[in-house]
Computed example of a mutant assay.
Amino acid sequence: MSNVNLIIEERAAKIGDFLVGRLLPFRKKRMVGPFIFIDHMGPVMLNERQNFDVLPHPHIGISTLTFLFEGNIMHRDSIGSEVEIKPGAVNWMTAGKGIVHSERTPEYLRNKEVLMHGLQIWVALPKHLEQMEPQFSHVEAKDIPSWKEENLEFKLIAGEVLGRKSPVDVFSNLYMIEIKSTAKQEVNLGDQLFGESGIYILEGSLSTSENTFSPKQILVSDNCSLCSFTMEEDTTIYIFGGEAFPEKRYIDWNFVSSEREVIEQAKADWEAQNFDKIKGEEDEFVPYPTRKSN
């Protein structure tokens, strides 16, 4: 793993009243494969006077992947989906030409202490699917492919790799793998990965003959060869990546597209409230921010 091209440190960012650790995009690396945005939420203990409330807001041009380690989130969207996200499940919402969703503490957990911890990820869509009809899928934790090899525990959160396929409905060649170590263990994935690849270290550490790497870092390679390293005991990592798209992607707030004109139209539509609304949440929304976008 001597060919690490870039190390990205987690940076503090604020979403509403909630502090997160931003990993992607990064000024020197906007995407890893089709992965264009990664936030590490928490861990944070919300007291009985706090709730996780992200009001209705729009997306275009991406699929969102929510993966919780702790806590619960109620997802609602403008195509009628209403699902409680629990730890280990995969919430996969495809915005396509446009969708609106909200994320909140479920009613039965409001006014209680709740630990929140997880990953919020955006995966860009291929150019020919950026304007597809919005879709939603939810895969429970028990249905995510899981297996053990020596002192390692694997989960294939999304994509197809390592001879297995996740049931999550992805739209490009990608992968996201969780690996947990129960004891010090060498990991050698050989040539099974493809495209660009990154490793996010959630806890513990991993090392090569040259370096040791710590939590809250992404290690990036542009030739999928992050495949041989040693994980220390009680380490958790996420390997993600896949085939990069030939076209550049632009980001403006929650809007992603290969064409700036599409983003400008989405901005105008949101400011005019022309997006479909979430049933029961018609009067709530997050306004388009006045800050400079990426």
Rank of each mutant, 00 (worst) to 15 (best):
H138L: 15
S137K: 03
G118Q: 02
Q131A: 10
G118T: 01
E133R: 07
Q131K: 02
Q131H: 04
W147Y: 11
A141Y: 15
V139D: 09
P145Y: 08
Q131L: 12
P145E: 03
P134I: 05
E133K: 08
E140N: 14
I121A: 01
E133V: 07
V139C: 08
D143C: 07
W147R: 12
W147C: 12
K127A: 14
E140Y: 10
E130Q: 14
E133S: 14
I144R: 08
E140H: 14
L119Y: 05
K148D: 06
I144S: 04
V123A: 02
F136C: 12
E133L: 15
G118W: 01
L152V: 05
E150F: 12
H138C: 10
S146H: 09
E140T: 10
P145H: 09
P145R: 11
I144C: 04
S146F: 11
E130D: 07
A124E: 07
L125Q: 09
K148H: 05
K148R: 12
L129D: 05
E140C: 06
G118V: 01
Q131P: 00
P134N: 13
K142M: 08
I144D: 00
Q131N: 07
E150R: 05
F136S: 13
I144Y: 11
P134K: 08
V123H: 02
H128D: 15
S137N: 15
H138W: 12
E149K: 13
H128V: 08
E130N: 06
E130K: 07
A141F: 11
A141D: 15
E133D: 14
E150G: 08
G118Y: 01
A141S: 14
W122Y: 08
E150V: 09
L119H: 01
H138D: 09
H138E: 09
E140A: 12
H128I: 02
Q120R: 01
L119P: 00
V139I: 15
D143V: 06
I144F: 06
L152R: 14
Q135F: 06
M132P: 03
K127M: 14
W147D: 04
Q120N: 08
I121H: 00
